[in-house]
Amino acid sequence: MLYSLFHVDKTLMAVPITTILEIVRPSMFYSISGSPEVIDGLINFRGKVVTVINTGLAFGGNKVETTEESRVYIFKKNSELKVADGTGLDSELSPDNIGLHVDNIENVINIEIDELQAVPANMAHPFYKFVVRKGDDFIIILRPAEILNLNKDRDLLS
């Protein structure tokens, strides 16, 4: 299965490409007065209003700044996600379109199911699903559904 790799706070992470709607350059974020800091703001994505989350802050790391390199992953809505992925990843995505603001994107690689390993106990995190070792790279595979259903983990946002 193909995964799209990206960096957040110097950590390499990945999501299955089947969950992504589009990856865009960050434009102007409309900041929402009164919203938690972890939300960068709203963007107009071809007529849809998309909430963008600062992935760095969401993981308790450094804030992702808007740069030439930084990108926003826009994920599919549940209703748009037609292809269920075969890795046992949650296919239950958020009902809204949500964007993740990341530091930079890397290439797309293929990861076989038998390469996926459980997350070591010392780095367990509700957003982490698996870890993968590819040569020198250590990749964390995210659970998109968990990140996107942030309502469940509101304390992570505060």
Binding site: I32, S33, G34, I39, L42, V49, S94
Partner: peptide
């Protein structure tokens, strides 16, 4: 008017968001 994203639905003082004529977003 587009409904508020679920993440923000505690901010009840907003009815939703909208895209204005100049393509900007406004609450």
């Amino acid at each position: 008017i587009k409904p508020l994203p679920r993440i923000l639905n505690k901010l009840t003082y907003y009815a939703g968001s909208s895209i204005l004529g100049d393509s900007d977003v406004a609450m």
